[in-house]
């Protein structure tokens, strides 16, 4: 199971990636799965075992980014 962070635009994804990587998180950029409807074709995938979701939320919301979290196999 992985966390999928879904954003509203590609610019948001790019900004989020920079912020999260700078904060030391590990992530992958992937194509948004077909079953998730999204304005943006790219998403961020993170593994639960090395991700503190609360910290992720903090980093992103502090920087004005809104997003949804999905759990995907």
């Amino acid at each position: 199971m992985n966390y999928l962070l879904i954003f509203e635009s590609t610019h948001h994804v790019m900004k989020a990636e920079k912020l999260l990587l700078a904060a030391g998180f590990r992530l992958d950029i992937i194509s948004t799965p077909k079953e998730i409807s999204s304005a943006c074709g790219l998403s961020i995938r993170m593994k639960p075992e090395n991700t503190d979701l609360e910290m992720v939320r903090l980093v992103l919301t502090e920087n004005g980014l809104t997003f949804n979290i999905h759990e995907k196999k």
């Binding site: 590609t10 994804v13 790019m14 990636e17 992958d28 950029i29 992937i30 194509s31 074709g41 790219l42 995938r45």
Partner: peptide, 14 residues
């Protein structure tokens, strides 16, 4: 350029 980098990542990871 930045878009190009992130697109390639999505391409390979998918």
């Amino acid at each position: 350029a930045d878009l190009g980098i992130i697109l390639l990542k999505a391409f390979v990871n998918t």
